Amino acid sequence: MGQAEQAPAQGPRTRGKRPRANPTPKAGRNLPAAVVVGLTMLFGVLGGLLFLPLGFVAVTTTFAVFGVWEIFRALEANGTRLPIIPVMTGTVAMPFAAYLGGIESLLFALLLSSVAVLLWRSIEGAAGSANSIFAGVFALGWVPFFISFAALPLHAGIGASPLGLWPGGTVPEGALQVAVMLLLVVANDTFGYLVGASLGKHPMAPKISPKKSWEGFAGSVGGAAVVGVLASVFVLDKPWWVGVVLAVALVAAATAGDLAESMVKRELGIKDMSSILPGHGGVMDRLDSIVFAAPVAFILFGLAAGA
């Protein structure tokens, strides 16, 4: 053999520092962009919630519409046609039904939307109808129905103003409850990211979301507990332990929502639902925690009403 056949050829040597193998943070996100976008959304939502509730419902509905549209595109790319018109109609109707009519109106809107999906798909033909109907009802329940629980606590405080301003400028307890829920979800995401990115070694669900670790989950619980205690005492005027219960329950719900969306994305073979939000991915990549946390918070606040 010749020398060239005995050993593989070596590439040219490079001087100086070796290039970094992966400049992306360990948790896989652009942190500065994620923080800016996250804080902008948080302040915008809280501003509407505390001063113009109808605006908050409109913003919530807009997020739900974008989330459902991302689901529609992801399913369509995998061969499942979502009945988009009845699903979008239900998506717009449910948050406003919850705000204006309460839990009964929300349930009626969900039922009516599901029937509309069935009838619409029946008219289009039988081919692929079963998957299409199941997907439509699933999308209605996953996004607009769950997220409408964030509008339910506002129903009791509706004022006479056509703009939806709180009467007398006083923010009702329901709006404060929703604000605390959002703060706890943000605390879950923020502290989980910071601790998980630096200390995460033991994945919670390696086959679904390899980057989500038990260390990050512990950081979420600890950080949210601090925020929950402060919010419970100074915002809700409740005992400190109420904040701890809320923090643990909402972190668990938010984590379950995150893992559920990760499972759906893995099944569909995609990394993010879209790239509309810099540093976050798609709208559903931000709503995944909230849609599970909102109904849990609504139930817990109802149980804690007498505390």
Score class of each variant (00 low, 15 high):
304 A>W: 00
49 L>I: 04
302 G>L: 02
254 A>P: 08
272 D>S: 04
259 L>S: 01
88 M>R: 04
78 N>V: 11
134 F>C: 14
35 V>D: 04
195 V>P: 04
218 A>W: 15
56 F>E: 05
74 A>M: 15
140 L>V: 09
293 A>M: 03
251 V>G: 01
132 S>M: 09
62 T>R: 00
5 E>Y: 10
231 A>T: 02
11 G>S: 10
106 L>C: 09
248 V>D: 12
214 W>F: 15
243 G>M: 05
172 P>N: 02
101 G>V: 06
209 S>V: 12
222 G>A: 14
164 G>F: 06
111 L>R: 12
198 S>D: 06
140 L>R: 06
204 M>S: 03
45 V>Y: 05
74 A>H: 07
280 H>W: 05
187 A>P: 12
291 V>G: 00
57 V>W: 04
167 P>K: 09
105 S>N: 11
232 S>K: 07
12 P>G: 13
153 P>Y: 09
231 A>M: 12
57 V>E: 03
283 V>N: 05
242 V>T: 13
52 L>Q: 07
216 G>K: 07
223 G>F: 03
299 I>K: 00
283 V>H: 09
22 N>L: 02
184 L>M: 06
193 Y>W: 07
170 T>W: 08
185 V>R: 06
232 S>F: 03
239 P>M: 07
154 L>H: 10
290 I>T: 08
140 L>M: 10
29 R>W: 01
184 L>C: 07
77 A>K: 15
1 M>H: 15
258 D>E: 08
140 L>Y: 03
55 G>K: 01
102 G>Q: 13
301 F>S: 07
289 S>K: 08
137 V>E: 12
48 G>S: 11
284 M>R: 01
274 S>I: 09
306 G>C: 00
93 A>D: 02
162 P>R: 06
217 F>A: 14
153 P>D: 13
236 L>H: 07
205 A>M: 13
91 T>M: 05
85 I>E: 15
159 G>I: 03
152 L>F: 12
298 F>T: 02
272 D>A: 02
82 L>I: 12
260 A>V: 06
200 G>F: 02
298 F>I: 07
187 A>H: 07
195 V>W: 03
217 F>K: 00
179 A>I: 11
227 V>M: 09
241 W>D: 03
58 A>V: 09
33 A>T: 02
11 G>K: 13
29 R>G: 00
85 I>A: 15
73 R>I: 10
224 A>Y: 11
104 E>T: 14
97 A>F: 04
109 A>H: 08
187 A>S: 12
262 S>M: 01
24 T>V: 13
243 G>W: 06
108 F>W: 12
156 A>T: 13
10 Q>E: 15
150 A>G: 11
187 A>K: 08
167 P>F: 10
108 F>L: 15
42 L>S: 08
157 G>K: 10
211 K>G: 04
83 P>Q: 14
255 T>R: 02
188 N>S: 15
132 S>G: 12
57 V>Q: 07
250 L>I: 14
